[in-house]
Computed example of a mutant assay.
Amino acid sequence: MTMTPLFLKPVFQDRIWGGTQLRDEFGYDIPSDKTGECWAISAHPNGESEVVNGPYQGKTLRELWNEQRDVFGGLDIPHFPLLTKILDANTDLSVQVHPDDTYALEHEGELGKTECWYIIDAKEGAEMIYGHHASSEEELKDMIKDGRWDDLLRRVPVQKGDFFYVPSGTIHALCEGTLVLETQQSSDTTYRVYDYDRKDDQGHARELHLRQAVEVTTVPHQDAETTPTTSEHQGTKVTTLVKDPQFFTVYRWEVTSETTFAMEAPFLLVSVLEGKGSITTNEGTWSFNKADHFVLPTGIKEYKINGMAECIVSHI
């Protein structure tokens, strides 16, 4: 049983709304000046992270999940359940909605998509679309058909350090000038509602999915209430951002000195947003830096984190 943290090589995705913040802020070698997504911890076939250290070096996270399930606690579920991304919204994302598991498995053959966002940075006056003002499905259809977007879409201000929980069925969109860490179910199913009549590089309007979007949208909109709680654990301030027993728990760690943790989940996903430090297990010590992403596998029963760093940590 490995007691080695699994450091991962991210996969980058060009997007019509992407920019250069993944390079400018995190130093990644991005493929273009329209790089919108860093799939940092991913076993999804549309973007598989690769292990870059230890006995499983060179394997993708999906291969490791399929071939060495004991590394992740031997869970009896078909697919690696979570996906961590960093998103650079250089311009507005399309207005969209994701299905729940039942709808997605029936119509798309994969999991639905409940997600959450930690705002790494945001320009002054930044906002996001979160929810809608339709009171019934008929009103939702009419407002979409008539293009009454200003009346339909609910806009909320965002700033650095904010956190939003986005259950399936929530109409949403990140808007210009936000840099976000997203924790989500491992799914790539998105139904576009509105895309500002934009054209792609070939001059084509991007596909909308209005029938599916109406079918899966929660009407009327319901805010997902989360109440973050903070505790001090030795030298680390731990903020529990969301704890949903069905999908995931997400924490923010602010590390200031050596802290010992017991592993209380089958495995942990860790993304380093600021600073640097080290992690020690019975098998050795590994350094980490801003922009690193790693998985702590089942074999690690206890570990020590040391340094000055901000991390987002999640588990099922």
Rank of each mutant, 00 (worst) to 15 (best):
A126G: 01
E124I: 11
L181A: 13
Q222I: 13
L6W: 14
P10Q: 10
F12I: 14
L75Y: 01
Y130M: 02
W39L: 12
Q68I: 00
K290H: 10
A43V: 02
S257L: 01
H133W: 02
L61I: 06
D162L: 04
T91E: 07
S271Q: 13
Q21A: 15
S278H: 05
L268A: 09
S278W: 00
G147T: 11
R23E: 15
I120C: 08
V95N: 09
L179S: 12
K304Y: 08
I120E: 00
G112Q: 02
W149M: 09
F247I: 01
G235S: 03
I129C: 06
G161N: 07
E25V: 15
P220K: 10
G131Y: 03
A40G: 15
P55A: 11
Q57L: 04
S136G: 12
T226P: 03
D92H: 09
F288S: 11
K243L: 02
G131M: 03
A104L: 00
M143C: 00
V71H: 06
I279E: 01
D146P: 00
F248Q: 00
T226S: 07
T91V: 12
A126K: 07
A134N: 04
E176S: 14
A262M: 05
Y28S: 12
Q159C: 11
L140S: 04
I144M: 08
S168W: 06
D101I: 10
P55C: 05
V295L: 13
E232K: 13
L241N: 03
I279W: 05
K145H: 14
V156K: 12
M128V: 14
A173S: 12
V11C: 10
E215I: 05
I30M: 08
E182A: 14
E139T: 12
E67A: 01
Q202D: 14
D121H: 02
I312Q: 14
D244E: 06
Y103Q: 00
P81I: 02
D151V: 11
F72A: 07
V242M: 03
T239P: 11
E310R: 15
D150W: 08
E207L: 12
I86D: 01
Q202M: 13
C175D: 01
M308Q: 15
V270S: 06
Q185G: 13
A224C: 14
I30F: 13
G73S: 10
I305W: 06
E138D: 13
K123M: 08
I86R: 02
S287V: 10
E108R: 02
A43L: 09
K9I: 03
V270F: 09
A43P: 08
S94F: 12
A122I: 07
D146G: 00
Q96D: 02
Q184I: 10
V71T: 14
E139V: 09
L174G: 09
H133C: 01
G109T: 10
Q57G: 05
D88R: 04
P78Y: 01
T249G: 07
T298E: 13
K276F: 01
L153Q: 02
D92Y: 01
W39F: 15
L75A: 07
V270D: 00
L181S: 12
F163V: 05
T240F: 07
D76E: 11
D88F: 05
R62G: 09
N289G: 10
K237Y: 04
R15G: 12
D223G: 02
